[in-house]
Design a protein around this nucleic acid. Structure first.
Lengths: 351, 351
DNA sequence: GAACAGTGATGGAACGTTCCACGACATCTG
DNA sequence: CAGATGTCGTGGAACGTTCCATCACTGTTC
């Protein structure tokens, strides 16, 4: 049944188990046709009759023939590869964006190669280099950790689309982002409607997306609650900021009655700290997250959060990348609308 | 400063922006040497003098030369690529295993390509095919969803190492797994030491790892608490099983006082259901998870969980794969020891 | 000073594929 | 039946690299 492996496999790497991989020549010889005919048959191109095509395919199947992608892309001068650079595997936001990119890539017959930065700026950059060395025709970058100069330099060689906020203008690089100001507006409006006025913002990062969200929060507060000075905590020393917020809430007289956080991860930490300190949620404090990640439904109380259409953003990013590869030269920046998902971590303030 | 892109990039794909990628020939001509000399220089091989090497490297740098990976692997007959097949991006278990694999691969100068199954058996299989088409020299599979027949068939072409429980014997395929029986023993021992006797097991999957863990639980119970009939819920209709467990706990007379769950995900669902129903944790119910994922520290109470040395498992898997690629033919199956991490979701039972 | 060894450098032959120009043959058209 | 128009199929030339045999030269050794 199973063909036994040869007693001592050669070390050269050239000959895999059970001898060499069959090539197009082997198939041609076995089928009694030219290699060109085989090439046409397996690529489903016209130039061979239906009968010979079928015959060739059958022989190929029998021999276990697999076309060598490298040889093909060598002669065609294109690889059909696109890259996606992730800052962090194991993050559901990235997973969902990736799913969108994958779907769009599959439709366009592009193969997706994943690069993984592991939350480390240097590694992220190395990984991007590695993708380029592999010969990707473009890269979707799901991270705001790549420095703009580097982005611009790489962008000159190969099309790039960033999912998320770009740190300022980067000529030659496209982007797709959610409208943070709209997300912040929905969060603040929701809290104000519930009756909150002492609303704080908590952030754990100084990267563009976070800063943008923070600015949007401040602006929204000023327009909806003029006279109230918007309170902002973070991004340095997140843990201390959380402790301080919890302390303020426990005073009850002047502390915030609601917190809009930079994302669900930060919100989860805040929820944990509150529960540890005996702060009752949502009675004493309403909390709004950002991302609508899978965390929201696992926490208690379940987290009210701003949802980004992640898969759609991924699709758009890849479509834009494909346009670039196709020759578009002018920059494009698109944004999508986020949407608030209300759960049980928000309620009217006491009294 | 920035070289402007040409007004209309050609559509052929062959010529990238700013003309064709420079090849080894271009460098050779510019440096006034033969292409062979360039090849030797860039690969740091002997056969060129130090002076010419330096000169060549400088010219290459200036021209922005990048060696073409395909051409190289075409002639060398090996790609230097290994694959890793993940069932689910966005899962911290997979992320950590991947990190270990990445580190080991980097040390061996192998490039890692990630395949993503998106929790779908068919897609997983397609993704494995795609990796093979890319020419990987071996694959680490972090998933128990690939059917054994398929595993065996692919394993005949290319070395495979499975991280996790293999579904029975699969000749030609290696594996690295944690000792579920040891994990189950530690969990049960911990609960028994706290004074629990009515301990249930909750599982949400019928895959090998879960079944193995379940069997280990039953065995442990029989040996530590003879006379008690081990209660097992799931894997079908997880939600209903959870509801039933919560109902039993609320009776207080005969229901379980502790639950050992198949993994942290399932534990999180149970925690949520308990809190929703007003069951106090850990007073009324102790809960032990499996995986020691990032979830554990986000939930309240923080989850006691069995830790698997994920990164180490990843490293071992890749090292074993490299051995296989190097020519080893006999099968190897290694296991590692898990370790219980006690947090606040477990306590002595009331009364 | 002849034979030899070692170093630096070279051109041509692969690697497995696609592309292109062209040829053999059949079928249609006036 | 001569020419036009297809269809089916072919061999050779690329693609960018590494590998190998070979060569020219410089010392070194007897």
């Amino acid at each position: 049944m199973t063909t036994a492996p040869p007693p001592a496999a050669s070390q050269t790497g050239r000959s895999r188990r059970s001898g060499r991989q069959p090539t197009i020549h082997d198939v041609a010889k076995a089928a009694g046709v030219s290699k060109s005919a085989v090439s046409l048959a397996i690529r489903n191109q016209r130039g061979v009759s239906e009968a010979t095509r079928e015959h060739i395919l059958q022989v190929a199947q029998q021999l276990g023939y697999r076309s060598n992608v490298w040889a093909r892309s060598l002669v065609q001068g294109r690889t059909g590869l696109v890259g996606i650079l992730l800052q962090d595997l194991g993050n559901s936001y990235h997973r969902d964006v990736t799913a969108g990119v994958e779907d769009a890539a599959a439709e366009l017959d592009l193969r997706l190669v994943i690069g993984h930065g592991r939350r480390d700026a240097a590694r992220l950059q190395a990984e991007l280099d590695s993708l380029l060395a592999l010969g990707v025709e473009g890269v979707v970058i799901v991270s705001s950790w790549v420095p703009p100069q580097y982005l611009e330099r790489v962008g000159r060689r190969v099309p790039l689309v960033v999912v998320g906020r770009l740190p300022g203008q980067v000529p030659g690089v496209d982007s797709v982002a959610n409208r943070d100001e709209l997300g912040a507006r929905q969060a603040v409006e929701h809290l104000v409607e519930l009756g909150h006025t002492r609303i704080a913002h908590l952030t754990g990062s100084a990267r563009p997306a976070a800063m943008h969200r923070r600015a949007a929060f401040c602006e929204m507060m000023r327009s909806l609650l003029p006279g109230v000075d918007p309170q902002v905590e973070g991004p340095e020393q997140l843990e201390a900021a959380i402790r301080y917020l919890v302390f303020q809430v426990q005073q009850e007289t002047s502390g915030p009655t609601a917190v809009f956080t930079q994302n669900d991860r930060v919100a989860a930490d805040l929820v944990g700290a509150c529960l540890d300190a005996g702060v009752r949620l949502p009675e004493q404090l309403s909390i709004v997250g950002y991302d609508n990640s899978s965390l929201c439904r696992m926490l208690r109380p379940q987290l009210t959060s701003v949802d980004q259409p992640r898969a759609q953003m991924g699709r758009m990013a890849l479509d834009m990348l494909a346009e670039r590869i196709g020759g578009r030269t002018e920059d494009r920046h698109v944004t999508v609308a986020p949407e608030l998902v209300v759960r049980s971590s928000t309620a009217a303030p006491r009294g």
